[in-house]
Amino acid sequence: MSVQLLDRELDRLEGLWSDGLAETYGSYLDAVVHFEPDVQPRLALAAALIESGVRLQGLGGRAAPPTTLLTGDLCLARGSRLLADNAPLPVQVAFARAIEAASAAAAAEQPAPDLRQLLRQALGATR
């Protein structure tokens, strides 16, 4: 991923990169190869931010402390903005549905779906 993109998209979230976000990002790279080359890192980062954001918030587990929750919220919002600017509509919709599924399960105190799997599927959504 280019240094410029890292700088811009990780503003305020720099610490997360070395704290697992880089690894999470890497786990999505093979799921975005069917997109244009310049879009691939943005979509992989969007997925990584959303997965990390949800984990930071403690969704489906013990609630995160307020400041950590806010960092998680920013991860979700930035991931969502990256999708809005770079992803086709079916992918945006599939990402949203993945978060809806995870949060609905958490609210109902049911087992959490595998979010990474859902997000990887979302990256392949075509309709």
């Binding site: 979700l76 969502s80 949060s103 609210a107």
Partner: peptide, 12 residues
């Protein structure tokens, strides 16, 4: 916990 889930659901 519920507040986080409800917020996330409607954000999405």
């Amino acid at each position: 916990e519920r507040a986080i889930a409800v917020g996330d659901y409607y954000f999405a």
